[in-house]
């Protein structure tokens, strides 16, 4: 099968922009704190006081990301979402249910040591430690569209390796039909797991799942970095899943367990609201979320209020050519 992955010819121009944005990051974090305070003044105080008080007093020392060696992507026709936005607009409820909270609350997250286990229906169970994540496989750049179920999207240059490479190494048995993924459960480090208000009322640890053939698809990526560096914690450090043809909630972050199983697992959002979130969660403009349309999306690129684009959402987020065959003869309205 021929896989077309949209990539960049030369990243020089982007690199320059990145550095500028990078230089602005310190002030950026400070400003985030300022907005919090300003927002607080205009609201009735109650609910947010705790978090913002904490961050106005303490200066957030950004998590240290390290540069990675990787094979650059070849060509890319899409405008990338700036690094500063990719790393400050996150759905990672373990660090707060509001989009700006993970960037603030995750900076002290410890990723070393780390252990990712591959277990269940495999002939050779594997445990990867922190260094293994970056050394066991060749790291390549993949520029993917990320479509959130909330109808916004980004274009992100991920670094990582195909999940298939890891699974092949573990050798799934004949019984393996599904793959279950689990995020770290550590309420001491992840305030959303110990505080219901921060955690947005979902159950922890966060669990996601894929069918084995979805997991083995060459597009399915285990990401260890973005924009040339290791992942910041708000984006799911040190290792996360990226499934570009599915809604963002499938792309589970800060992975500690990958387990091969016989039966379809229950994924977190589906368990919470079965009518609103399915197991498959393939990006599909024809199947609306009960509370909003999925026919179009807002692409988050650079700039402020007036530079937002509403664009049409494509079936399978534009990756139909690579993945539509996985769902032949399936009613995608029933299996949303």
């Amino acid at each position: 099968m021929l896989i077309k992955i949209p990539q960049v010819n030369s990243l020089n121009e982007n690199d320059v922009t990145d550095e500028v944005i990078y230089q602005q990051r310190r002030t950026f974090f400070k400003k985030l704190g300022f907005v919090g305070a300003a927002g607080l003044l205009a609201q009735s105080q109650k609910s947010q006081a705790g978090i913002f008080d904490f961050f106005n007093k303490e200066v957030v020392k950004p998590f240290q990301v390290k540069p990675l060696n990787y094979k650059k992507a070849h060509h890319n026709t899409e405008v990338l979402t700036p690094e500063a936005k990719v790393t400050s607009h996150n759905n990672f409820y373990e660090f707060g249910a509001k989009k700006h909270q993970p960037a603030q609350l995750a900076q002290n997250f410890k990723v070393e040591p780390w252990a990712l286990t591959i277990s269940g229906e495999v002939k050779k169970p594997i445990t990867l430690d922190y260094d293994d994540l970056f050394s066991c496989f060749d790291i390549e750049e993949r520029i993917y569209r990320l479509r959130c179920v909330e109808a916004w999207s980004m274009v992100i240059p991920w670094l990582g390796f195909p999940l298939a490479s890891l699974l092949k190494k573990a050798q799934p048995t004949a019984k393996a039909k599904y793959v279950v993924f689990e995020t770290l459960y550590d309420p001491k480090q992840m305030p959303g797991q110990s505080n219901r208000r921060l955690g947005g009322g979902i159950t922890y640890p966060y669990v996601e799942g894929l069918r084995l053939d979805e997991a083995m698809n060459p597009l399915t990526l285990l990401s260890v970095g973005l924009y040339g560096k290791t992942l910041p914690p708000q984006n799911g450090a040190p290792i996360r899943l990226v499934v570009p043809w599915k809604y963002g909630f499938k792309s589970i972050k800060s992975l500690v367990s990958i387990k091969l199983v016989e039966k379809q697992p229950a994924n977190t959002w589906h368990v919470l609201m079965p009518k609103e979130y399915g197991f498959y969660a393939n990006v599909n403009p024809k199947v609306d979320h009960p509370r909003w349309s999925q026919a179009s999306e807002r692409r988050i690129t650079s700039g402020g209020l007036f530079t937002q684009n509403r664009i049409k959402t494509l079936p399978f987020n534009g990756y139909a050519e690579q993945v539509a065959h996985l769902y032949k003869n399936m009613d995608l309205r029933a299996y949303f």
Binding site: K31, A84, S88, K99, H100, G304, L305, F306
Partner: peptide
Amino acid sequence: LPIINLYYQAISVQLFADPVKTV
């Protein structure tokens, strides 16, 4: 004042990653 501040920040700088939802 908060409204003026809000739109000024949303329009001028990259203060919010998604200024639309913020406003």
